[in-house]
Nucleic acid binder design. Structure first.
Length: 259
DNA sequence: ATGGCCCAGTCCCTGGGA
């Protein structure tokens, strides 16, 4: 089973790239972040025409997440723990496989900058909620994949120039500590399970020629429960999408699971 | 050339992203 995640930075701007990706890579499931539209504005028909089921958790103008899957699936919208949270950053599906199910979440963690604003505590609180929810999901002891834009640079080798990120919400010690608290529940960072090399990135800023200089960071992750990690076969960063005209600033990353 | 972007929306500026 092939599972991918991609922060598309507006699905309406990126629909051509998205359809090409679905045709070329043919993931069984794709998590999207920053669709930047309400549910009714999602270009559903074009995606369904390629054989995908579409579940969205949209929001006007900002944020918004979705799961596309070849097989129909059950879905839940929103992360438990804060009924007052109006930001659409989490959607979870239970997708049938040949042997059982895989539980798949599309996650868009808050950026959190600037760190001296209310945005940073919101980011940390969101991580706390994700930790609490993940603890419950892990108790099911089933294949679980948390996929998305975590807005966390886990280690210095996950940035081309880590010194430029030391006071940034993506790389502050407290951010990295909470991310480790999440993975320490028993999740495997899929990419780091297969490779320990530096220079593996999923985001390059639009500004200052970051892409041309390969000034990137690794902030899009697939985190696996033990039952999923046992079935991990390979991980690929689909860098080609970032090199296209009118690209998202993120590129997709995907895994193969023997499920 | 030592700086360079892109998105949505009460829309020609602003807020947000990372």
């Amino acid at each position: 089973m092939r599972i991918a995640t991609w922060n598309v930075n507006s699905v309406r701007q990126r629909i051509g790239h998205l359809l090409d990706y679905l045709k070329d890579v043919a993931p069984d499931a794709l998590c999207l972040q920053e669709i930047k539209c309400v549910d009714g504005q999602f270009p559903r028909a074009e995606v369904e025409a390629l054989g995908y089921n579409v579940e969205t958790h949209g929001q006007k103008g900002f944020n918004g997440v979705a799961i596309l899957s070849k097989r129909p699936f059950e879905v839940a919208r929103g992360l438990p723990g804060d009924d007052a949270d109006v930001q659409s950053r989490y959607i979870e599906g239970v997708i049938p496989t040949d042997t059982g199910v895989v539980r798949l979440a599309s996650v868009y963690l808050p950026n959190g900058n600037p760190p001296d604003s209310e945005k940073y505590p919101y980011k940390l609180a969101f991580l706390d909620r994700l930790i609490r929810h993940t603890r419950k999901l892990l108790a099911y002891e089933e294949p679980l994949v948390l996929a998305g834009d975590f807005n966390v640079i886990p280690e210095p080798k996950d940035a081309a120039h880590p010194e430029q990120w030391t006071s940034d919400a993506l790389f502050l010690p407290q951010t990295r500590e909470k991310f480790r608290e999440l993975t320490a529940l028993g999740l495997t960072d899929a990419l780091r399970a297969t490779r320990d090399a530096p220079g593996l990135y999923t985001f390059w800023d639009y500004q200052a020629g970051a892409w041309q200089k390969n000034n990137g960071i690794r902030i899009d992750h697939l985190l696996l429960s033990p039952q999923a990690a046992d079935r991990l076969r390979s991980v690929e960063i689909d860098k080609g999408m970032r090199g296209r005209d009118k690209a998202s600033d993120h590129t997709p990353i995907r895994i193969e699971l023997a499920l």
